[in-house]
Amino acid sequence: MDIRPALESDLPELLALESQSFHSDRISRRSFRRWLRHHDRVFLLAVDQGQALGYALVTLRRGTRLARLYSLAVAPQSRGRGVAGALLKAVEQGARDAGALYLRLEVASDNQPAINLYRKLGYQQFGCYEDYYEDHGSALRMEKCIRPYAPGGDSRTLPWLAQTTAFTCGPAALMMAMAGLPGGYRPSPEDEIQLWREATTVFMTSGHGGCHPLGLALAAHRRGFASEAWINIEGPLFLEGVRDENKKRVMRIAHRQFVEQCAAARIPVRHADIDQGQLTERFQAGANILILISTYRLDNMKAPHWVVLSGFDESCLYVHDPDLGDTHPRQAADAQRSALDCQHLPIARDSFNAMSRFGSSRLRAVVIVEAGPGTAPTPAPAT
């Protein structure tokens, strides 16, 4: 048995393997062709004397240290020969060589042979998707650290939520942060839109306005939480992405109102950089933290985007990303993500420094949310 990279000329064999292995949720010819040409993946084929035995496809999340086993298939007549295990070990090495720290996967909850294989190779279950497949079957969520790092500081319960529009990453991130603190806050679609209405900058580039850090801090304060904002520049934000002078005028007014309202509410606003040490210290002390990033390293879009810190270790910071990709019309179906791809994303610390600055102004913005008066924060254990 030889394991080699899959080639475009292997497309007929890949389609045959797919047809023999799966009754539903099959990868289409178009999707196979796309993945064969894609850069952010590890795609391997097992062959024996010219006959295709099986394939494994792993996708890599740009800008992060996370990989995902997208599909693994072995021809029925080749099962029992160790093909699946050999392919899995090979794609793990490929993902490791690409810099990934973790490999995640979904497997049908009734596919006991596959579950046994994954457990034998060191994968651990950390969740379950109900009604995941076309036949309404559920899927177990499994993960393996493929590099010898032990994540820490993320043992608190921090829920993950998806944004429901292309412009509500800020509200979704804030709902995660508030729901992960004492106080009994319950997220809802209605509050997602209400939070956006309270925190929006009104305009941003050519689309709907995004959320201002001071607006998010105010929204948390109104819901009974203690909040604090760190912004490394003074003055109105995001103006560089807007050409229309009247829009800029409105954004300056909105910024001035946010500043005045924060002062009236006695919300601390610090015009300084906050470093990774300070972020992790506040996280360990019980705060949940929203961080503004540029999506350039994730999708080449250079858009401002809010995420939530979910943990850290010596090599990475981990974040919950509310963006599944399906709210963006230009996002190809094959590039859309599962919830598994968006939780506890491992981002290397050196990459994080660059990712957490936006635009030519090098804007860095953080909103820290803590339990309000009368509630006791629950600190994460020291690492």
Rank of each mutant, 00 (worst) to 15 (best):
A371D: 01
A226N: 11
M251N: 00
G80L: 07
I267T: 13
H328N: 12
G372S: 15
P236W: 02
W35F: 13
Q278W: 02
T295L: 07
A56M: 06
S78N: 07
G170K: 01
Q331L: 14
A114Y: 03
H255Y: 07
C316N: 12
T164K: 07
A173F: 06
R186V: 14
R156S: 12
F43V: 00
L218Y: 02
R223T: 09
V366F: 00
S227V: 11
D135Q: 09
A376S: 13
L239F: 08
H221I: 12
G209Y: 03
P182V: 06
N353P: 02
G184M: 08
A365E: 03
Q163T: 03
L105C: 15
S19N: 09
R256N: 13
N353I: 13
G325N: 04
L279K: 00
D321P: 12
Q194I: 11
I233A: 09
P113E: 06
A380G: 10
R357V: 02
F126R: 03
A199V: 14
Y132E: 07
S188E: 06
L218H: 01
V269F: 05
A73Q: 06
L36Y: 08
S138M: 03
R147D: 09
R357K: 10
S360W: 07
L44S: 01
V308K: 03
T205C: 14
M301D: 13
G235Y: 02
S78I: 05
T165G: 07
R266A: 15
A75I: 09
I293Y: 01
P159H: 09
Y118P: 02
N246S: 15
R29N: 05
F238P: 05
R197A: 14
V319C: 09
Q112V: 10
G50E: 10
H221R: 13
R297P: 00
I193C: 11
A150I: 15
H38I: 13
Q163S: 12
R186S: 09
V369T: 07
G152V: 04
G210T: 15
E281S: 15
N111G: 10
V74F: 05
R249G: 11
S28Q: 13
R357S: 05
R37K: 10
R29L: 00
L121H: 06
